[in-house]
């Protein structure tokens, strides 16, 4: 029931939000159309400004994955994951998740399909996918959009967040689904 409500929220949120914005603007006697155009004008520049950062990241990540270096790294790290109680099959997902959202989703989908959504691997992959974030992607485009080159402790914080999320999802899945 709760989950049904939650799913409804995500469908309704954006239309409702737009209504609130527009009605409030109208009530305040703003020239709503003009104001929209004025704000929207920046959209293109911001999006285009992040191209160099996106290309730098996408090329490096894709080369690393396509060449097989990712699988090699996964094989090296597999024993560590075993100690924590996670099957080695989910490791490529754990490694890919901070780097690329679409590749990680691809891996997660494949795991869910191959092992079944109700298997331990399928459930763990689902939780991991929902728990961790594409830290590199987020940092790259957010910092790139304003021209920041020195990330300071942001990268470390982001990676710690991913690691915590990963460990917590392994722990919780073992607790609930095993």
């Amino acid at each position: 029931m709760l989950e049904l409500i939650l799913a409804k929220i995500s469908n309704w949120a954006i239309p409702v939000l737009f209504c609130v914005f527009l009605l409030l603007g109208w009530a305040r006697r703003l020239p709503v159309y003009e104001t929209f155009i004025q704000g929207a004008a920046e959209g293109f520049q911001i999006a285009v400004r992040i191209i160099p950062y996106l290309v730098a990241m996408f090329v490096a990540i894709k080369v690393f994955r396509v060449s097989g270096a990712m699988d090699m790294l996964a094989r090296l790290c597999a024993p560590v994951l075993g100690i924590l109680g996670a099957p080695p099959e989910v490791l490529p997902l754990a490694l890919m998740r901070p780097l690329s959202g679409s590749s990680a989703l691809g891996i997660a989908t494949e795991l869910v399909k191959t092992y079944g959504p109700d298997s331990f691997i399928g459930r763990l992959a689902s939780v991991m996918q929902g728990t961790t974030d594409t830290t590199f992607f987020v940092l790259t485009i957010y910092f790139g959009s304003v021209g920041i080159k020195k990330y300071r402790h942001a990268l470390a914080l982001g990676l710690i967040a991913d690691l915590t999320g990963l460990l917590l999802s392994i722990f919780l899945c073992n607790l609930i689904f095993k």
């Binding site: 737009f18 409030l24 603007g25 305040r28 155009i37 920046e42 959209g43």
Partner: peptide, 13 residues
Amino acid sequence: TLWLGMLEIAKQS
């Protein structure tokens, strides 16, 4: 572009 337009309305109101 869409969201920044909407956001500007929210900001000015």
